[in-house]
Simulated assay, not measured.
Amino acid sequence: MNKIVGFQPIPGTTLEDEETHKPPCNKKANAVSIHCQGEYPADEDNIGDITYYSEDGEDRQCGSLSTDWFPYEGKVNRQDVYQAPYIWVQFLKPKPNVLINVMCRVYGRNIHFDKKSGRALTRFQIYVKDPPKTTSRQAGDI
């Protein structure tokens, strides 16, 4: 069971991340990083460029969550109101008419990634439909 309440992430990367691959994010002293990519090689080919929007601005490599948001203590001392931190991800030019599997993961020194169990990641799919081509007859130019 994953423990979220009371968890305090430590910025950086795990030793395993450093040994198995070069993490794509620049380390920040006060934030954990989030990076999205195509889950499989075909998805990587189709996903295109990504821009991340976080509270600290815009980035082309990774989004970030400030450690100021942690630890999450539920609704205690929040008067039953909790505003979650955000990271928006904009896919700039995904290949149209193709289902793309996206995997976004979080990096932290005490955040251990496990693709099989789904730990430290989220998955979703995007599909961008090409707009239909209009002919001059459809556009009313007869």
Results as ranks from 00 to 15, higher is better:
1 M>R: 10
1 M>G: 08
2 N>L: 09
2 N>G: 04
4 I>C: 08
4 I>R: 06
5 V>G: 01
6 G>T: 06
9 P>V: 02
10 I>N: 02
14 T>E: 02
15 L>P: 00
18 E>L: 06
19 E>T: 03
26 N>L: 07
27 K>C: 01
27 K>L: 13
28 K>P: 00
29 A>Y: 12
31 A>H: 15
33 S>G: 10
40 Y>H: 14
41 P>M: 05
42 A>Q: 15
42 A>I: 14
43 D>N: 13
43 D>P: 15
43 D>A: 13
45 D>K: 15
46 N>A: 12
46 N>I: 04
49 D>A: 15
51 T>C: 08
53 Y>C: 00
56 D>N: 12
60 R>S: 12
65 L>R: 02
66 S>T: 04
69 W>Y: 08
70 F>V: 00
73 E>T: 07
73 E>D: 02
74 G>T: 01
76 V>T: 03
77 N>M: 01
80 D>V: 00
93 K>P: 00
96 P>C: 07
97 N>S: 05
99 L>N: 12
102 V>A: 06
103 M>L: 13
105 R>S: 05
109 R>S: 14
110 N>A: 04
115 K>P: 07
115 K>Q: 14
118 G>D: 05
119 R>T: 08
120 A>W: 11
121 L>G: 02
123 R>P: 05
124 F>L: 11
129 K>Q: 15
129 K>W: 08
131 P>I: 08
131 P>W: 11
131 P>G: 05
133 K>C: 03
134 T>R: 14
134 T>D: 10
135 T>A: 11
135 T>R: 11
136 S>L: 14
138 Q>A: 12
138 Q>C: 07
138 Q>W: 12
142 I>N: 13
